[in-house]
């Protein structure tokens, strides 16, 4: 990625237009994530609090180690790692064992960022790399979700959180299915209002779609994030699922359910907008967002897994250099001249 003057040294979202200092941007992204994180702690209690803390701490530790071993100056201070860690923590199930959270944090920063050359070089969103690693390594843990608003959530930690390092985490007897899994495997459709207000089970930070959207709108309003990517992504999901729902309402979930369930909102607002791993051109952003949205629908409806936002965004990340090449005009050719062969 060429570092033009004015391009800020931040790695995760939002898309930055020049004019703000790093501190301001970081402060605002954290501010935008804060309602989501606070809601997660309210909904899942201590479990979410320790998960988020462990996620941020492990990402910071991994970054420190990577900087130290490669001899490059420390990048801990720029806040980008904190945001990677926070986003990564928000994608985990709340009762995720702490040692697994730490392993994933190291995978996120180590595999997703340091190995590719560190800051600004990551082809994929590091937070999602960590989540994907855990999904492949510990599939059972990663798909065991505690229900939201348990009665004792502020006084006791779930047994799985404190599983000894590298030890097996026996899931609690009572684990809830996410709305997407319930729809896919049992055909039960959750209330859209429950989804929007986050009254359902799921990953730590994905449940309350409205608060995430509010955070995104705030960043867009302050001109700190590309609105095109989330717009294209959500638009593609809405269009595709609306078409399918109209065609066969019993077989396909309504578009509002698709929009507000799972990690779509979190992914569209905070993950897909990673400025290093997304296309640079405006047209590219539209194609990229629409591609991710389409893949999400395909995975959710025809795939074996109930949720596909993570893989869809990673695929979109992989495609973004190609998208940029596709839409870049020739160096000396105005766009019109190109078609005249």
């Amino acid at each position: 990625m060429p570092s033009a003057p004015g391009t800020l040294e931040i790695r995760t979202s939002p898309h930055v237009l020049s004019g703000y200092s790093v501190d301001t941007i970081m402060f605002n992204v954290v501010l935008a994530l804060l309602p989501t994180a606070a809601f997660a702690v309210w909904a899942f209690g201590l479990a979410a609090l320790v998960t988020l803390t462990a996620a941020v701490a492990s990402c910071l530790a991994a970054e420190w180690l990577a900087c130290k071993s490669s001899g490059s100056p420390s990048t801990l201070g720029d806040g980008s790692v904190v945001i990677t860690g926070l986003l990564y923590g928000l994608t985990l199930p709340p009762a995720c064992p702490l040692w697994i959270t730490a392993v994933g944090g190291f995978a996120a920063v180590g595999l997703g960022k340091a190995l590719f050359g560190g800051l600004g070089q990551n082809p994929f969103n590091p937070a999602l790399v960590g989540r994907a690693f855990l999904q492949a390594a510990f599939p059972v843990t990663m798909t065991t979700f505690t229900p939201a608003f348990g009665a004792e959530r502020f006084t006791t930690l779930p047994g799985t959180s404190l599983a000894p390092p590298f030890g097996r985490a026996e899931p609690d007897a009572f684990s809830g299915a996410t709305p997407l899994a319930a729809w896919k495997f049992d055909g039960e459709l959750a209330q859209t209002s429950d989804l929007a207000f986050g009254l359902v089970g799921g990953s730590t930070g994905e449940t309350c779609a409205l608060l995430i959207a509010v955070g995104g709108l705030y960043l867009i309003a302050r001109n700190m994030m590309s609105w095109r990517i989330p717009a294209a992504m959500l638009g593609a999901v809405a269009l595709a699922s609306a078409a399918l729902h109209v065609w066969a309402p019993e077989a396909y979930a309504p578009p509002l359910f698709m929009l507000f369930s799972g990690g779509l909102m979190l992914g569209a607002v905070f993950m897909a907008t990673d400025m290093v791993a997304s296309p640079m051109t405006h047209t590219g952003c539209w194609i990229y967002g629409a591609l991710i949205g389409a893949v999400v629908v395909v995975i959710r409806i025809w795939g074996a897994m109930p949720e596909g936002v993570m893989y869809a965004i990673l695929l979109g990340n992989a495609a973004s250099p190609l998208i940029d090449r596709l839409v870049q005009p020739g160096v000396f050719a105005p766009p019109a001249a190109e078609s005249a062969r």
Binding site: A136, A137, F138, A163, R168, A169
Partner: peptide, 15 residues
Amino acid sequence: PAAFEPWVVMLLPSG
């Protein structure tokens, strides 16, 4: 030890 949680990813191609 039996309490070890296996890293399934290692048995998969990506491992």
